[in-house]
Design a protein around this nucleic acid. Structure first.
Lengths: 144, 144
DNA sequence: CATGTTAAAGAAAATCATTTTCTATAATGC
DNA sequence: GCATTATAGAAAATGATTTTCTTTAACATG
């Protein structure tokens, strides 16, 4: 999903498109990984003049409400990943925290309606991406 | 999973079986729902002489490490549900926070190995249990 | 394009969940 | 029993997140 589309989504919901938001949003989208608010703030600082941490928190809140950010709880830390609005699942690399979207879905929502009404579901896969897998093998080969 | 089994699991890992832990554990297991540490603490207070909130936090930490508690992030709040150690998924009622275990699993772990190595996955279904569904219909029927 | 309205930025303070510290106690092994 | 050591609990510390307040800038309107 490209920036322009998100801008119009924000606009629809009466959120203003400030320069700060555009900067944070761009950084967030381009990172391709899950980040804590503080980490996202750090990334923004590296590439642009700093934006306040409060602003980062507030944008994440807005995006989450709009379904454009998804929180992950890993080891007690809350991370967020940018997220298009089409239903999909996530694969998260436990090493580098990169996130890959998985658009296949077995549409199991209706499968479990004996428990009640299922409004939505999420599925998260955790593991190691190919890149980190390779690195880990290299590291292991250095061991005695 | 019954209490005795969990006791032996704690024991295996060199955790002591204190009276406080037994009380909190029993309350946690019997609740059948996801609870914040503070909520669990409140539940314990109602049924038994109070146990310290710190103790509740520490037990949840231990259970999570042993795979006997699962955290859920809902609206920025972290809830925990008691969890047997067999792999399963969860249905969570967004009204009453009751949790139902779903032991069917499509074993999709291997299905996505083009992204890398999948170590584990979780799937959460969110909706409204039959009980709350019924209540909601009754509430609606009272509206003008 | 100028202007009024109002959401948002940012700094600082406040809040609140969670963790740590420290001492007394009780669970476990011998 | 007795020694060892993990745990309970109270209080303090920590640290992430939220709130407050003032200034600024985005947007709609004429």
């Amino acid at each position: 999903m490209e920036l322009e589309l998100i801008k119009s989504k924000l606009h629809e919901s009466n959120f203003r498109l400030t320069q700060e938001r555009e900067v944070v949003l761009t950084t967030f989208m381009n990172s391709g990984q899950m980040l804590t608010p503080a980490q996202l703030h750090d990334c923004v600082k590296k590439e642009y003049n700093s934006v306040g941490l409060t602003t980062v928190y507030r944008l994440i809140e807005v995006l989450t409400k709009l379904g454009l950010a998804t929180p992950f709880l890993i080891d007690g830390e809350i991370y967020y990943t940018f997220c298009s609005d089409h239903h999909h699942h996530h694969f998260v690399c436990l090493d580098c925290h990169k996130v890959k979207d998985i658009y296949e879905c077995l549409e199991m929502t209706h499968k479990y309606d004996d428990v009640g009404t299922v409004n939505y579901h999420r599925m998260d896969l955790y593991g190691h991406c190919k890149n980190c897998e390779r690195k880990n093998i290299n590291v292991k080969s250095l061991e005695p």
